[in-house]
Design a protein around this nucleic acid. Structure first.
Length: 592
RNA sequence: GGUUCCGUAGCUCAAUGGAUAGAGCAACUGCCUUCUAAGCAGUAGGUUGUUGGUUCGAUCCCAACCGGAAUCACCA
């Protein structure tokens, strides 16, 4: 419909005013509820070229639409509202209400999009900040796939470096041979425990040195534990068998822990990279850049890129001892991925604290090294999750642990359910439901917020289950399913197509029009890489349905065609809710 | 200090440059002998940080200022 309007508008502009207009369906908006109409066109953009008053342009265009598209129209202050015959909407409903992939676009031979997310360190378990990263990455992947792209999800695990050595060292010194089995702890939590342990002892050492009169910054560098950790990193880089074995073992514990967390979150990757295998890769590119004259070497042998002309600073690419830094590896991994998948776009889901890093990365690859994939890098930058008392700090124990939080949400869902006196579930269904609701609430809470904004999480007030939440939307879905079950119980076969003489009421029409918007929302969410658009749409839709549900009894309706039509609308709404929530990685129940 | 991002109801969040800035939570008022009340209807709550500018039209774009955050490492 939108396309037809746009095409007709293009023709009208050419014929009436000789204006050459590029098709852009986004200027055709849904009419606001307080006005009469289905679609609204703002005519102001054309009045200058048309050399007529806004109302005259609207009148002429309205006449044209009326003749060519058989719609009615009204004009309010330069806004042209078009109203289509009811039958148009009924046809839309008939043609789509059983289409289980409604809102999803076909893949075809489309572009490859590579998306990196999660990218954890292996020295501690995942926390709420990681959850936002994982959920965003997963949901954007789903949305882009729904937009017809071939999406490849990759994870880059930071499995090496000084921070892992800290955990290893602390375990060696204070661990007494503890294992996940012996302690009944998840592996990542056990390793995280020793990361904290290291910090505790390290701080004590620094304090002692300071008490002995040493300067703080010197003490921080001279503390025996820090020196030992650095020594361990050197041994690691020299392939010391003992250190490598310990490293392998502790990483293995962490991976088993992560696997559980990922599974519960419902996310998976197509490919996992490990920094221990890729961290040397960038050196070749740095060498290439040196030869091209894109970079330069200082007297101390360190290598730099000069980005002052681009408004940034000079950036280190290789240390004076020849070892690689973060930027070096990212240069390497970008090349590696590009060679492997030739993506049209490479998305990095990384927090906004690294905005500068990605500005530099893009410039170094595109402007300096002149690689064609430089401009294809897209940093999907998201805001921090803040607590009422500030940022999460693992060393200060103010982190909200991912596993704990998920567990609490599930228990909360269970409590809430029994509070409401809902106990009638088949064997095994109840625990599935609690998980669906608890995790759904958590995911929705995070995804409904615009990714680039910082958001606040208050652990004292647990996440709501009423209002603009996943449980509300899930409840609406369950309600509809209950309606459809009742229809089946009453032997009502509403799957027929004979609705030709029926007029839709406003509540029904509003709902159908909102359902019509879904594919457009998916498209925009893909372009903007924002699950928040999907989340807010799903809420609006559920809200709209509940209004309809409350105001419009279905089974009391004596006109059978009208009753059946309402069942169509209900079924379609359930389908769209499910499709929308699936894009957020949230399941919807048949009953709750 | 330089750069980037954010400031919308008491709180948490919406609003591709379009009509009277919307939801939820919290507060208050109604609606369950039932198509599931995790719901619906209603009341109250706003100078969209401030001041200018661009525009037919600005929460949105531009400039300055005020607040807050991030970043500017031979960390990642």
């Amino acid at each position: 419909m939108r396309n037809e309007i746009a095409l007709t508008l293009q023709k009208a502009l050419r014929e009436l005013y000789n204006i050459d207009w590029q098709i852009d369906t986004s200027i055709i908006q849904r009419t606001k509820k307080e006005f009469e109409g289905d679609f609204t066109l703002v005519v102001f953009p054309f009045v200058k070229q048309a050399r007529q008053s806004p109302d005259m342009v609207a009148q002429s265009l309205g006449d044209y639409f009326q003749q060519n598209l058989h719609c009615r129209f009204n004009i309010v202050k330069g806004f042209l509202n078009l109203t289509f015959p009811c039958q148009v909407w009924i046809n839309f409903l008939k043609n789509n209400y059983t289409n289980t992939s409604f809102g999803y676009f076909a893949t075809g031979n489309s572009d490859v999009t590579l998306i990196e997310f999660s990218s954890p360190n292996t020295n501690k378990p995942l926390h709420l900040g990681h959850i936002r990263n994982n959920l965003l990455g997963d949901s954007v992947s789903r949305i882009l796939a729904a937009c017809g792209k071939k999406v490849i999800k990759v994870n880059l695990v930071n499995d090496r470096g000084i921070h892992i050595c800290k955990s290893m060292l602390a375990w060696q010194k204070f661990g007494n041979g503890e294992t996940p089995e012996s302690t009944q702890m998840k592996g990542d939590h056990l390793v995280g425990k020793y990361y904290v342990e290291f910090d505790k002892h390290y701080k004590a050492e620094v304090a002692q040195l300071e008490a002995g009169g040493m300067d703080k910054t010197v003490a921080e560098k001279q503390a025996p534990l820090m020196l030992e950790a650095q020594e361990m990193l050197r041994k690691w880089e020299n392939n010391d068998p003992e250190i490598r074995q310990l490293w392998n073992q502790m990483n293995e514990w962490v991976y088993q822990g992560f696997a559980q967390t990922y599974q519960q979150l419902g996310i998976a990757f197509d490919k996992v990279y490990y920094e221990s295998q890729t961290y040397l890769l960038g050196k070749q590119l740095v060498e290439e850049g040196l030869q091209k004259g894109a970079f330069y070497r200082r007297d101390d042998q360190s290598v730099w890129a000069d980005l002052r002309e681009e408004g940034l600073d000079e950036k280190l690419l290789l240390r004076s001892d020849g070892t690689s830094v973060y930027m070096t590896q990212d240069l390497g991994t970008a090349q590696l991925r590009y060679d492997e998948f030739h993506p049209k776009e490479m998305i990095y889901v990384v927090g906004n604290e690294q905005n500068y890093h990605f500005d530099v990365l893009k410039l170094v690859i595109g402007k300096k090294l002149k690689k064609e994939y430089g401009p294809r890098i897209h940093h999907l930058s998201y805001g921090m999750v803040e607590l009422p008392f500030g940022k999460m700090k693992s060393r200060e124990g103010t982190v909200v642990d991912a596993d704990d939080l998920m567990e609490e949400m599930i228990i909360e869902a269970q409590n809430k359910t029994s509070e409401l006196g809902k106990t009638d579930f088949e064997d095994g269904k109840a625990s599935q439901l609690f998980e669906m609701i608890g995790l759904g609430a958590l995911k929705y809470f995070i995804l409904k917020v615009d990714p680039k904004k910082n958001m606040l999480f208050d652990p004292e007030e647990s996440i709501d289950f009423n209002g603009n939440t996943a449980p509300f939307i899930q409840y609406t879905h369950a309600r509809i399913k209950s309606l459809l079950r009742k229809a089946a119980d009453h032997q009502i076969n509403y799957n027929h197509q004979s609705f030709n003489e029926i007029d839709l009421q406003k509540a029904e029409l509003d709902l159908v029009k909102m359902l019509y918007e879904f594919p457009q929302i998916v498209k925009t969410a893909g372009e903007m890489k924002s699950p928040a658009l999907i989340a807010n749409y799903a809420f609006d839709l559920a809200k709209e349905f509940n209004r309809f549900y409350q105001e419009t009894p279905i089974f009391k309706e004596t006109n059978e065609q009208l009753r059946d039509l309402r069942l169509h609308i209900s079924q379609f709404t359930a389908l769209v809710i499910k499709n929308a929530m699936t894009l957020l990685g949230i399941h919807v129940p048949e009953k709750m």
